[in-house]
């Protein structure tokens, strides 16, 4: 079953890469000429070649040969050269992707954990005073993120100075794997992480709460009570089943980690992929856009694969297909 899934993913990846290859070539006009015109006076030979390589124009090859060449470049890790930055796209991505994965990844997982745990308790103790958490969480989800981020930044960062602001780490420490840097990283990450968790936790919470309420009505939860199990274990019986849809949603959320952080990175001036993509689009830096799309596609696919594996482990019923 998992093997069949894997082959499905390979096909999807192939389609995504092919579309990524074809898209710039299907655009009207000649982007190379457009870009050269835009950059008149500053364009280097290297840049022209980079553009030509990215679009396969000027190489006088037919589409098929270009396609083969594209794959060849891709397999050796050559994504072309960024037009505006004059550096290889792969190294541009290497410097941006870890920031985004770090910030948004941590926030997403934290939000999932906090939301799922509170959702479990909200479901079990439904109708109690805990329920007042729901409107509060929903409020933060409803407030536009840009606004929430700015307010939090101004109040807790600029005015109260509880958290450092702007950037990913203090300018006074040199990046590297030592304690000062990691500490600075964590301190600078706190505010963006808290803001993201605040604005996204309601979804996890409500989803889990509703599934818990559905599960509590199940016979096996009644049986857990009848068995005289302590309340903690009874809740676990229900939660273990209620969490399954949330896990499926987590995979989608993780897939979007790389791309979905534009606003956060803008508000907090964080050096990630969202910021990079915005710059690339504004400057019509096609090789870079192509590279970012490729990374986003691959992350979404990888996250989905991971979720499939995780689900397979969590829910034995999905395993029967293989057994029968």
């Amino acid at each position: 079953m998992l093997l069949r899934r894997l082959s499905l993913y390979l096909v999807t990846a192939w389609v995504a890469i092919t579309v990524n290859f074809l898209l710039p070539r299907m655009m009207p006009g000649n982007p190379v000429q457009q870009l050269i015109g835009k950059l008149t006076g500053q364009v280097t030979v290297q840049q022209v070649r980079a553009i030509e390589l990215a679009f396969g124009i000027g190489l006088h090859q037919n589409l098929w040969d270009q396609y083969i060449g594209y794959w060849h470049q891709l397999l050796v890790g050559n994504l072309g050269v960024s037009i505006t930055l004059s550096t290889p796209v792969s190294s541009v991505l290497q410097s941006a992707v870890p920031w985004t994965i770090g910030l948004i990844g941590v926030s997403t997982i934290l939000s999932f954990l906090v939301g799922t745990v509170t959702g479990t308790l909200l479901g079990w103790f439904r109708g109690s005073r805990l329920d007042s958490l729901i409107p509060v969480a929903t409020f933060f989800q409803a407030v536009p993120y840009f606004f929430l981020g700015t307010v939090v930044l101004l109040v807790f960062g600029s005015n109260l100075h509880w958290f450092p602001v702007l950037g990913a780490y203090s300018q006074s420490v040199t990046p590297g794997w030592h304690w000062d840097f990691v500490f600075s990283l964590v301190r600078y990450g706190e505010l963006p992480v808290i803001t993201i968790v605040l604005s996204s936790v309601a979804g996890w919470m409500l989803g889990m709460r509703n599934m818990m309420i559905t599960m509590i009505a199940e016979d096996f939860v009644l049986m857990a009570v009848a068995k005289g199990l302590p309340r903690r274990k009874v809740i676990m019986h229900a939660a273990r089943n209620a969490v399954l849809p949330s896990v499926a949603n987590l995979s989608l959320a993780i897939g979007l980690v790389v791309s979905g952080a534009l606003l956060v990175e803008l508000v907090f001036n964080y050096p990630g992929v969202g910021d990079l993509l915005l710059q690339a689009v504004l400057n019509e830096d096609y090789p870079l856009i192509q590279g970012i799309f490729l990374v986003i596609t691959m992350t979404v696919l990888a996250a989905n694969l991971l979720a499939d594996v995780f689900y397979f482990v969590l829910d034995p019923r999905t395993r029967t297909e293989a057994a029968v």
Binding site: E218, D219, F220, A226, G228, L229, R240, N241, L314
Partner: peptide, 25 residues
């Protein structure tokens, strides 16, 4: 109640599929 449950009074329900937790062995 917890001490008495199952050790003194146990129960068998109509649908064993629903009474057994689907994700546990």
């Amino acid at each position: 109640l917890r001490a008495i449950r199952w050790s003194q009074v146990s129960i068998v329900l109509q649908s064993a599929l629903n009474a057994l937790n689907p994700v546990l062995r």
